[in-house]
Design a protein around this nucleic acid. Structure first.
Length: 423
RNA sequence: GGAGAGAUGCCUGAGUGGCCGAAAGGAACAGUUUGCUAAACUGUCGUACUGGAAACGGUACCGAGGGUUCGAAUCCCUCUCUCUCCGCCA
């Protein structure tokens, strides 16, 4: 959520930036500023009345103590209508506040200046590409055939138990998952991230803090009886650790990693491109979260991006890095890099990580602040990135490393799987 | 699920109608002392909005929302959360 004071002081800049994103309701900005102006005007009128009421009340107290009963009574009768006036002002202010809030929550973050213009995924900018196309035979199979050939992931069984998009991992498939999780967590620890195990359900305040609510509740599974949501990503519970807190400047950067399952309803996305592991309702992911000083956040973003790339290199996967264009970025992000791996049998790029700087967009909602060197409160910057999401990594490993004798496990993982081939 | 207790500033904790934006201690920050560290001493030390060039003011906030009153951290109502005991249980 943008700060109203920032919008007020940088109106043109905000409008221009939102146009880059393809935000349609630009006129809302003007409306917002009008509402804010009248709110502040009413507020100061109300403050004057309140000040008078306070003075009168204080006088009554003093007169009573001095034993001057009648004078006190006189002021009392004069004071009785202050309350009504203040109440009337308060009602107007509450109404305006609500309107202001309703607009603020639909305004997306302002894109960083390096974000390319563009509205669709085609306009994302490829900033880096690494690795070779694996040399596969004509008979190379897509991963959903390999999983049943080696009996490591059973999609139908998951459908029976829960529904489509909830696969059952079996035998070496389950072990591969466990190996990847441990590999990712160990690497993150080496890179200085402190591991946490958060709840995998969140309340409404947490969902609001990181920007999933309001608006995206349709993407999350809702447990109505207890008013909780299953997490769509560990970003939500991990970042919310710091909600309503004042962090020490010396503690920057705060670095956490977390493994969690993630749940997404993915309502309305079906078809050939979501086959197999490409898009699931439940999947595993190791997530990185950082909270930094505003001056450091873009440097941190680059570090997170290169960290994620080292993981892909260690796994021997061909990948590319995209800088998302304004229209393709998430609502809360100021700058996002997507990492995509090449899935050789499908001949498709699969997104396996998304690394974003949210600047103060989340911290303004979360109220994550620190005291700067001048003793002033400032909002911290929040960032996060997947490192990594498992299913598409599994898909790429299966497809890219398939041989006649089975699927060769990447060397970096063998210490974790304790087998070299899936066969 | 049943019964009870509680929610105050970064933390602990006092405060039952006006002199309370809030005692005290701790932490933190600055200074004095010190060979260094520690200790001691002195001072500073809430947030948000708002007026002002600044100095310095105004308003709001003691879990949330209502109410009583000239006046509420303090009294009343509702809600939320936390803790303790009992029950159940991985």
């Amino acid at each position: 959520m943008l700060q109203i004071s920032y919008i007020r002081e940088n109106k043109e800049k905000v409008i221009e930036a939102l146009q880059k994103r393809g935000f349609r309701e630009i006129e809302k900005i003007e409306e917002l500023i009008r509402l804010d102006e009248s709110k502040r005007s009413i507020q100061s009128q109300s403050d004057i009345i309140a000040s008078q009421a306070n003075t009168a009340a204080k006088q009554v107290g003093e007169l009573m103590r001095a034993g001057k009963r009648e004078e006190a009574e006189a002021i009392k009768t004069n004071s009785s209508n202050y309350k009504e006036q203040i109440k009337a002002f308060a009602e107007d202010i509450a109404e305006l506040d609500q309107k202001i809030h309703d607009i603020l929550v639909i305004i997306p973050n302002i894109p960083h200046e390096s974000v390319p213009a563009g509205l669709t995924a085609e306009e994302n900018e490829v900033v880096f590409q690494y690795g070779e196309d694996p040399d596969l035979s004509q008979e190379a199979l897509p991963h959903w055939e390999l999983t049943s050939k080696y009996d490591i992931i059973d999609f139908e069984l998951g459908t029976k138990i829960a529904g489509a998009g909830f696969p059952v991992y079996k035998g070496k498939g389950a072990k591969l998952q466990r190996a990847l999780i441990n590999f990712f967590l160990d690497e993150a620890e080496k890179a200085g991230y402190i591991e946490v195990q958060p709840p995998i359900v969140i309340n409404e305040a947490s969902g609001f803090g990181t920007g999933q609510l309001p608006d995206k509740e349709g993407q999350m599974y809702f447990i109505g009886q207890d008013n909780l949501f299953l997490i769509p990503t560990a970003e939500v519970p991990v970042t919310n650790i710091y909600r309503d807190s004042i962090v020490k400047e010396a503690d920057f950067p705060i670095k956490h990693c977390a493994y969690t399952p993630c749940f997404r309803r993915e309502a309305g996305s079906y078809g050939a491109h979501v086959r197999g592991l490409n898009r699931l309702h439940q999947f595993d992911k190791v997530e990185l979260v950082q909270i930094t000083h505003p001056d450091q956040s873009y440097q941190t973003l680059e570090e997170m991006s290169s960290y994620v790339q080292t993981l892909l290199k260690k796994l021997g996967l061909k990948y590319r890095v995209l800088r998302l264009c304004g229209g393709d970025m998430g609502f809360t992000s100021a700058l996002t890099y997507d990492m995509e791996v090449w899935s050789a049998a499908q001949k498709r790029w699969l997104e396996v990580s998304s690394v974003s700087n949210f600047e103060t967009f989340q911290s303004n909602r979360l109220k994550v602040r620190f005291k700067d060197e001048n003793g002033k409160m400032q909002l911290a910057h929040t960032l996060n990135g997947s490192a990594l999401a498992l299913p598409r990594i599994v898909a790429a490993i299966l497809e890219n490393f398939q041989t006649e004798n089975g699927v060769r496990v990447p060397e970096a993982l063998q210490a974790y799987t304790r087998f070299e081939f899936i066969d």
